[in-house]
């Protein structure tokens, strides 16, 4: 296809992506180098004839507004926002490292730093939900493959709903069942014989609840993809393995799994990508006291009643994108190879 007609076909899509994806990426980088203007303060000294002098500090509203309208981006801060206490907190981490006697002390100190708290949960969620959901999905796929065909349709139908449901809504539905007045919350109280048990009360319980939600909503994707993959596993190889005396488990381990390997890689990377942006369930579970994620931190910086912390949101965004880049370089390289080989 000649260049001219290629770009004529491609133009709307390319312009949309340039304006609203590529350009904002530059814009957040620029924003992250600036920080909001501090309020302009005036110090006035009022002296009473007898009572001495009192110094008073007030906000000069007019001067602050003028400063903000003249340079709305804020003042240049270089990499200051990146290293401050709310982000990479270089100084605090160094101090913690030298002061804490044990690793446990260091870790718990790190969990008080906003950025590392969010990073810890994001990675924990990402690297726990992904394998759990894949294992559950694979189990369902194997089971559905064995049961009568009649059940296939209903199982796929009811599996698609938790997966395609609005994340905020799906998480709310589970949260209402799991909180201390909900049916599952009460069931847990009975099970552990602790009427005061609340899934919101402690960080570990909140984390477990979020993992439960993540597995519930992500397992169906693995199930659907692996189930489709199972239909394509070579019958001949399976039968040959059976004749060679391979047990059921050995057939799954040495025939089915290797032939699903490309699918496993695909699901793994899609899920890592999606789970890394975990954010809505934290709002639904009202969990920000016990668990925050990088995406949630950005949202929280932007969703304030008074003035948005653009610099902070932008710095966290740049760091998040850097993490994503590291995470998906393997898939990008693979896809690039396949594209060049003309297989995709």
């Amino acid at each position: 296809m000649p260049h001219s007609s290629f770009f004529r076909f491609m133009a709307p899509s390319l312009i949309a992506m340039l304006l609203f994806i590529a350009l904002p990426t530059v814009s957040i980088f620029v924003q992250s180098l600036y920080v909001e203007h501090p309020q302009v303060l005036i110090e006035t000294e009022t002296c009473q004839p007898l009572g001495g002098c009192v110094k008073e500090t007030t906000v000069d509203v007019a001067a602050t507004a003028k400063l903000r309208s003249e340079a709305p981006l804020g003042q240049f801060n270089g990499l200051g926002t990146y290293v401050d206490r709310n982000h990479l907190a270089i100084n605090s981490v160094g101090l913690l490292w030298s002061r804490s006697g044990s690793l446990g002390e260091f870790v718990s100190g790190m969990m008080n730093l906003r950025f590392y708290r969010a990073l810890a949960f994001t990675l924990f969620y990402c690297f726990l939900v992904t394998p759990l959901a894949m294992a559950l999905g694979f189990g369902i796929a194997l089971a559905v493959n064995v049961v009568p065909r009649l059940m296939k349709g209903p199982v796929i139908f009811f599996s698609l709903v938790p997966m395609l449901i609005t994340p905020l809504v799906g998480a709310l539905i589970l949260f209402w069942m799991l909180n201390s007045d909900g049916i599952l919350g009460v069931a847990l109280q009975v099970l552990f014989n602790d009427p005061g048990l609340s899934t919101q009360s402690s960080a570990p319980l909140t984390w477990i609840m979020l993992i439960v939600y993540g597995t519930w909503t992500n397992a169906p994707f693995s199930f659907i993809v692996f189930y489709a993959g199972l239909q394509a596993v070579s019958r001949d190889t399976l039968e040959a393995a059976m004749i060679d005396g391979a047990s059921r488990w050995e057939r799954v381990r040495y025939v089915v799994l290797p032939s699903l390997k490309p699918l496993v890689l695909f699901v793994l990377l899609v899920q890592l990508m999606d789970n890394f942006r975990v954010f809505e369930p934290i709002i639904s579970f009202n969990a920000s006291a016990n668990a925050t994620s990088l995406a949630f931190d950005i949202y929280a910086s932007l969703n304030t009643q008074t003035s948005q912390l653009f610099g902070s949101a932008a710095a966290t965004s740049v760091i998040t994108i850097a993490f994503i880049a590291v995470l998906i370089v393997p898939i990008l390289a693979r896809v690039a190879r396949e594209l060049q080989a003309g297989r995709v």
Partner: peptide
């Protein structure tokens, strides 16, 4: 274009939204 699109797909939306609000 295809590789860039894949990378764009991987970026969390909220990182981009933080770039939109100001403009």
């Amino acid at each position: 274009i295809l590789v860039a699109a894949l990378f764009f797909r991987a970026m969390p939306e909220v990182t981009l939204v933080s770039g939109y609000l100001f403009p």
